[in-house]
């Protein structure tokens, strides 16, 4: 128990157990999938469904790209103002996966996806939906993988406030709330500020929106604010997600414009 909680020695054993209970979990979701099947509109023709599927997928990809573009705009303007530099973002590979079932129990909050190690899914890959970060892959079987949600209390994410660049750590509080920690009470923060991943730790890619600040309170004799935040992703509504490829390098490479430097030297 202690080994599993504090180390990764039992990850393969857990994967073995998950593979064993996979048929049981499939059988357990039959009532839900039967209910969902009968909820569908039977008038819908097959082609229309396919088209709808295509559009939903395309829309998801575009929204994910839009998140990165917004981030880039901020980054470019900041760098241009400071140094006259240009920034370029490395495009990361994504994989679309469907949520098979979810568990939002008081013990642990996770999704099970229909993509596993046979599809190239690896541990610690970040998972997003159309609006923002959802969680991280914490166990993989050949055909499925589990995503621990950002609202789970075992998850900590290095983040920064998009408006000011102030760094902090975002922790899940269970249910649908997050807590932003280590923000000094001298820093500028307001309700509605967007919190995005900082890319530190090389687990979550840089610049994906995670949450919005919902309440700020100052604790007496404490150097930090107590900040609560709501996730921006549709954690309870999402049925399709994107699995991002592992972070190898910092996602933003800054290239100093040599021409400008050259003229400055002259």
């Amino acid at each position: 128990m202690v080994m599993d909680h504090y180390s990764h020695f039992l990850i393969n054993f857990r994967a073995l157990l998950l593979t064993t209970i996979d048929p049981i979990e499939r059988a357990a979701t039959i009532p839900l999938s039967t209910y969902q099947y009968f909820q569908q509109d039977f008038k819908t023709v097959e082609e229309l469904k396919k088209r709808n599927q295509q559009l939903a997928t395309e829309n998801l990809l575009l929204k994910a790209r839009q998140q990165q573009l917004n981030k880039l705009q901020h980054e470019v303007s900041r760098l241009n103002l400071l140094l006259g530099t240009a920034s370029q973002m490395s495009t990361s590979d994504v994989q679309i996966a469907n949520i098979k079932y979810y568990n939002l129990s008081p013990y642990s909050q996770f999704f099970t996806l229909d993509k596993g190690s046979l599809d190239g899914v690896k541990l610690h890959q970040a998972v997003i939906d159309a609006k923002g970060l959802i969680g991280q892959i914490t166990s993989v079987t050949p055909t499925t993988s589990r995503v621990q949600l950002i609202t789970d209390s075992d998850i900590q994410i290095p983040v920064r406030i998009q408006r000011t660049g102030q760094r902090g750590i975002l922790t899940g509080m269970g249910q649908t709330q997050l807590s932003l920690q280590f923000i000094p009470n001298t820093s500028s923060i307001k309700i509605g500020d967007i919190i995005e991943t900082s890319g530190l730790g090389n687990v979550y890619p840089n610049g994906y929106p995670v949450a919005t600040v919902s309440s700020i309170s100052t604790l007496k004799d404490q150097p930090y604010y107590e900040i609560m935040a709501d996730p921006v992703a549709d954690i309870n509504l999402a049925d399709k997600v994107l699995i991002l490829s592992p972070v190898k390098n910092p996602s933003i490479d800054v290239h100093i414009d040599t021409k400008l430097n050259g003229t400055a030297d002259e």
Binding site: I21, A27, A28, T29, I30, L32, Y101, N103
Partner: peptide
Amino acid sequence: YLAGLVIDSALNFSFALH
């Protein structure tokens, strides 16, 4: 035991009865 595991999983995943 198999049925018990299926029912426990169904309560969690299908009916969200934790």
